Deep mutational scan, measured.
Amino acid sequence: MAEQVALSRTQVCGILREELFQGDAFHQSDTHIFIIMGASGDLAKKKIYPTIWWLFRDGLLPENTFIVGYARSRLTVADIRKQSEPFFKATPEEKLKLEDFFARNSYVAGQYDDAASYQRLNSHMNALHLGSQANRLFYLALPPTVYEAVTKNIHESCMSQIGWNRIIVEKPFGRDLQSSDRLSNHISSLFREDQIYRIDHYLGKEMVQNLMVLRFANRIFGPIWNRDNIACVILTFKEPFGTEGRGGYFDEFGIIRDVMQNHLLQMLCLVAMEKPASTNSDDVRDEKVKVLKCISEVQANNVVLGQYVGNPDGEGEATKGYLDDPTVPRGSTTATFAAVVLYVENERWDGVPFILRCGKALNERKAEVRLQFHDVAGDIFHQQCKRNELVIRVQPNEAVYTKMMTKKPGMFFNPEESELDLTYGNRYKNVKLPDAYERLILDVFCGSQMHFVRSDELREAWRIFTPLLHQIELEKPKPIPYIYGSRGPTEADELMKRVGFQYEGTYKWVNP
């Protein structure tokens, strides 16, 4: 592979701008107003304001973009700056750019259920340069409990009458099928589907988006991507930290609602779906819905739930269990780990287990898709061969690698495990991989909904998990304890083995 010439960040961002501006969906010269509902909250200060700053800094926003914060707290732009700027990672050389960014910011205080507050917000936006005809993007960085009041008031008082209007809704989209349907029906009564952007930030990850290209742009994968060759698929999300004093919020939802029903299920769809007619948003989402419709409700015998306990040999936070978090209700049975087996009941995947695993306070930070292939028929190497695996590593250190057998150097035919490896950090030294939120917010500006969740996708996802969630809430089974920093409950490994996964433990990928 030829040595790549190092590029400056300015040059890299210039390439990104060229890609972005050559499309006809990006209205570079139009006025846009980006409204952050819930501007005083954690999500706004840690993710949304920093993301908008990065896009502005790199010249990736339309030229005439204004940012308006809205929340109940009586704040000023200076207050917003004070709480969000520490997350910007701005350099001293960017000081003038930073001043320009905050000059485009404003803030309006108001209630979430008060019509007069929204009329005041609308008047404020109209007073901005060309504000009355601007395109408006409303980001709901809010708890779902206020979605209905907020969307109703936005629709009645704050819509642009000339430009387009788009609304970005953060997960969780309800707690179960019934609450999700209620919320979807409410929002759909106010906005068209092409105006609604239900954001799952995992769909903005580079390697998640790469799944489609790997599958449908490489001839070698087509013939082997089926039940005849693939023994099982494992989708993993692991965090090495616990709730760390923020367990009160987590306890309301648990690990299945927080990660599995959305992030992991979306990745499953991209692995299992048929080739779409095109890369058009609805063509892709149509195929994802077909996959979900082929999955039956989760069966309790295919589920393992766990909850982390303190590690007596650990240090600091590792010595504390979930129930030691003062914000967690006493005696909570909320799971911090889950392993679930699903089956896609169609011709391509009949009988292939899709194993979804996620948890907190585990032994490493990792998100990946792992396809394990069947054993080689007619073994001539005296059971020395391990199964081939194709691994798409989402985070950290984005990579695609194939675990395969090669001859060990020497005189004899002794096979050993090795890999074919594409590590993004080595291959793409001159490429700026956008943060997931950067990519998705740019998608909203461009009107691309491919990486957002459609209402029928959402409904099918909740259909699969709601009976299990209701059973857990009714019966309150005690989750299996696992030690902070471990791989999780051993019962999860036993479940995976029972459905056909072979864990060798003899080879570990190392970032080159």
Rank of each mutant, 00 (worst) to 15 (best):
A2N: 13
A2R: 09
E3S: 05
Q4E: 11
Q4R: 14
V5D: 13
V5T: 08
A6V: 11
A6C: 08
S8Q: 06
R9D: 14
Q11L: 06
V12P: 07
C13F: 08
C13N: 05
C13M: 04
E18H: 06
E19R: 06
E19L: 05
Q22C: 04
Q22M: 10
Q22N: 10
G23I: 11
H27F: 07
Q28S: 07
Q28R: 08
S29M: 14
S29A: 12
T31R: 06
T31Q: 04
T31H: 10
T31V: 11
H32Q: 08
F34M: 08
I35R: 01
M37W: 01
M37D: 00
M37V: 12
G38W: 01
G38S: 03
A39S: 02
G41C: 11
G41K: 06
L43S: 05
A44E: 00
A44K: 00
A44T: 02
K45M: 11
K46L: 05
K46V: 06
K47A: 10
K47W: 13
Y49H: 01
Y49T: 00
P50R: 05
P50A: 03
T51L: 03
T51R: 07
T51I: 07
I52L: 13
I52F: 14
W53M: 00
W53C: 00
W54S: 06
W54M: 11
L55D: 01
L55G: 05
L55Q: 09
F56G: 02
R57H: 02
D58M: 08
G59E: 04
G59P: 00
L60M: 06
L60Y: 08
L61K: 00
P62I: 02
P62V: 02
E63Q: 07
E63P: 08
E63W: 13
N64R: 08
F66M: 03
V68E: 01
V68G: 02
V68P: 01
Y70I: 04
A71I: 01
R72M: 11
R72L: 06
S73R: 04
R74D: 10
R74P: 08
R74Q: 11
T76W: 02
V77P: 07
A78F: 08
A78V: 04
A78L: 08
D79Y: 04
I80D: 00
R81G: 02
R81N: 03
K82M: 08
Q83E: 05
S84I: 13
E85A: 06
P86F: 07
F87C: 03
F87V: 03
F88N: 01
K89N: 11
T91A: 11
E94F: 03
K95P: 02
K97V: 04
K97Q: 15
L98S: 03
D100N: 10
F101P: 00
F101N: 00
F102M: 05
F102T: 02
A103N: 11
R104G: 01
R104C: 05
N105I: 11
N105P: 00
N105Y: 06
S106A: 06
S106G: 03
Y107R: 01
Y107S: 07
V108F: 07
A109N: 08
G110V: 00
G110T: 02
Y112P: 08
D113H: 10
D113T: 11
D113Y: 07
D114H: 13
A115L: 10
Y118A: 05
Y118F: 14
R120I: 09
R120Y: 10
R120E: 05
L121K: 01
L121H: 00
S123H: 07
H124G: 03
H124E: 09
M125G: 01
N126F: 03
N126V: 06
N126S: 11
A127N: 07
H129P: 11
S132Q: 12
Q133Y: 12
Q133N: 04
Q133D: 11
A134Y: 03
N135W: 01
F138D: 01
L140E: 00
L140H: 02
L142I: 08
L142K: 03
L142Q: 15
P144I: 13
T145I: 12
T145Y: 08
T145M: 13
V146G: 06
V146E: 10
V150A: 06
T151Q: 08
K152A: 13
N153Q: 12
N153R: 07
N153F: 06
I154E: 00
I154P: 02
I154Y: 00
H155C: 06
E156F: 05
E156H: 09
E156A: 11
E156Y: 07
S157P: 01
S157N: 07
M159S: 13
M159R: 14
M159Y: 10
S160D: 07
Q161K: 12
I162K: 14
G163Q: 00
W164S: 06
N165S: 05
R166H: 08
I167R: 00
I168H: 00
I168A: 09
I168N: 00
V169R: 00
E170G: 12
P172D: 05
G174F: 08
G174S: 06
G174C: 08
G174I: 08
R175Y: 14
D176P: 05
D176Q: 05
D176T: 06
L177G: 08
L177V: 09
L177D: 05
Q178H: 12
S180I: 09
R182L: 11
L183P: 03
S184R: 04
H186E: 10
S188F: 06
S188Y: 05
S189N: 14
F191I: 02
R192F: 09
E193T: 03
D194W: 04
D194I: 05
D194E: 09
Q195D: 04
Q195H: 06
I196H: 00
I196G: 00
I196R: 00
Y197S: 00
R198P: 01
R198F: 02
R198L: 04
I199A: 14
H201M: 07
Y202L: 14
Y202H: 15
K205S: 14
K205G: 15
K205L: 04
E206Y: 04
M207S: 11
M207Q: 12
M207T: 15
V208D: 11
V208L: 11
Q209D: 15
M212P: 02
M212E: 04
V213F: 05
L214Q: 13
A217I: 00
R219K: 12
I220K: 04
I220P: 02
I220N: 03
F221Y: 14
F221L: 10
G222M: 09
G222H: 08
P223R: 14
W225V: 03
W225R: 02
N226L: 01
N226E: 04
D228T: 11
N229A: 08
N229M: 03
I230M: 04
C232G: 11
C232F: 02
L235E: 01
L235T: 03
F237C: 08
F237Q: 06
K238W: 14
K238G: 12
K238V: 14
E239R: 03
P240H: 07
P240I: 11
F241N: 12
G242Y: 02
G242E: 02
T243S: 10
T243K: 11
T243E: 09
T243F: 12
E244P: 07
E244C: 07
G245M: 08
G245Q: 12
R246Q: 14
R246Y: 12
R246T: 15
G247H: 09
G247Q: 09
Y249V: 15
Y249P: 13
Y249N: 15
F250R: 03
D251E: 08
D251R: 04
E252N: 09
E252D: 11
F253I: 12
G254C: 07
I255Y: 02
I255D: 02
R257L: 06
R257F: 02
